[in-house]
Amino acid sequence: MGHLSPRLNHLRQALVGLDPTLGPGLHEPERALRLNVPGIDAALSGGLARGAVHEFAPAAPIHLTSATGFAIALAALAGREQGETLWIAPDFAVMESGGPYGPGLGLFGLPAARLLVLRVPRSIDALWAMEEALRCRALAGVIAELAEDSIADLTATRRLVLAARESGGMGFLLRHRASGVPSAAATRWTIAASPSRPDRYGGIGRAAFDLSLVKNRRGPTGRWTITWDQHERTFQTAVSLAVAETAFDRPDRTPSVRTG
């Protein structure tokens, strides 16, 4: 958008603010990462902004892996099947919640060959490394895990945002706990695992996420349940929340076969 006059730019932003559905048309396609879930893309005015930092946190500690999966899938989409992704993990986070596992990453579209892993001794080092990595244009995405939430405050995240804006890279800040600390991130998501719809054979179906967009600089917030299709490498809208919730009433040993 650099070639547009600032005034025009400002007007467009104002329009998007008034009606988020106008978003996709107003933003250049490569400036945003589309999730291909219409509701979410509309709320994000076209998709997840590139050259920005996005925050993810689990709704409860047991949902951390779901938050990880969502962030990984987005980083993989951002790489467009070729860019490299850097995963920064403090030692404590790996000990506490396990480390990234190669074969599993492939299911979220990020083959191990396109991933670099950096283990850092302290959380504060993760922030430093993330800022450094965001400046590097060779990386499609940078994921940093933070076991402590207080260190990534407004100042720290603003540095990350500036670095990302400079290079056009995407930063994914994966907090281990949902935090109220203000931050400069473009979006903030709270993610919970959602019971999957069993597949045809009664086994565990596609990974399902219960997403809450709790902060959005470019539009409204919202809540969606989506699934990840590992074969198509794309997100899909899940059945409505009400249907998914019936799973709670299912007796323990009932064969979990349902239609639809």
């Binding site: 074969p103 191990a112 991933l115 892993v117 080092d125 430093w128 990595a133």
Partner: peptide, 19 residues
Amino acid sequence: LIDRLGARFGLRRVSRLVP
């Protein structure tokens, strides 16, 4: 970038996952 991160944290800490 790998060299820089390696200089800071030690070269063994920047790794790739090899099947």
